[in-house]
Design a protein around this nucleic acid. Sequence first.
DNA 1: GTCGGTGCAAATGCTTTGCATTGAT
DNA 2: ATCAATGCAAAGCATTTGCACCGAC
Lengths: 159, 159
Amino acid sequence: MAGSAANTPMVAGGELEIVEPLCAVFRRKLKSEGLKYTPERAQVLDTVMRQDGVFEADTILKLLKGGKVRVSKATVYRTIRLLQEAGILQRVLFDDDPEQSHFQLVYGQRPHDLLIRVDTREAVTIQVPELIELRDKLCARLGLSPVGHRLQIFAKAKG
Amino acid sequence: MAGSAANTPMVAGGELEIVEPLCAVFRRKLKSEGLKYTPERAQVLDTVMRQDGVFEADTILKLLKGGKVRVSKATVYRTIRLLQEAGILQRVLFDDDPEQSHFQLVYGQRPHDLLIRVDTREAVTIQVPELIELRDKLCARLGLSPVGHRLQIFAKAKG
DNA sequence: GTCGGTGCAAATGCTTTGCATTGAT
DNA sequence: ATCAATGCAAAGCATTTGCACCGAC
């Protein structure tokens, strides 16, 4: 199975197979906890969805300034937390910035792994299907159920 | 290649093949930047080395209270940063604790991946040799040199 | 003897929270 | 109509920094 074209790690461009609209996922999560789908939350989700790659809470806040709906800093943070719980967002770790939290979209079941160029600080989303196999096999051997994973590969220009 | 015993992911207990004493690694890094190997830095390194799995700056600080050498909070943080730069420590991400940074030892060339139990919040070090192959292959295809990686697998008790 | 390191405490900056008011269901 | 969500600003907290003194090379 190794080496087949379909199983080869691929860099995912922007093409995304969205099985279900993200807002539906979010609404479901909210409803399941008796929470409300407010215009502010909708607006935050909308802005988050437009993000490409890794972003920060502050970025979202700034993008929302001047939008149709006024959203406060507190609500941005509160909503980001909800989006994490909903499995829509995931925090990402950057070694050189302990202060700020970084996020990425991880909607759908497919994990979005990252290739981070240490020379350019550029982060590209990649997909490594074999990793999921590996992960599931390992969990099975330990008698555990995989819940998810997170991979970051660090690389630099050859030379 | 999949399925061969030698290549199967393994849980690494505590057995560590240390090729070179950690303090030698640290001293070399310090010397290379014209920095000094002080008793405080030695003490922080010593305490860090005793840690098993993931720990926090605050833990180190508390363990150092009452030790032979008095080490301040500032020095603990400054030293942890140096240890990160030296490739001895790496930050680890916990989704539910954005405030505090978590660290783990990553001395030696072997990456220390983590299996995190979401039910018990327990973190176990694992080794996944196939991942390195995968990583190197992917980088090669993109014309990049792998520098390192970080993997966290989240799992819970089966049921 | 020099120059960087340490300790202290104050500053920093992201994130969270309390409370009065507003708004979704 | 009700009960939770929002906004504001203040609080909270891990981490960083300025400065006077101390110690390794």
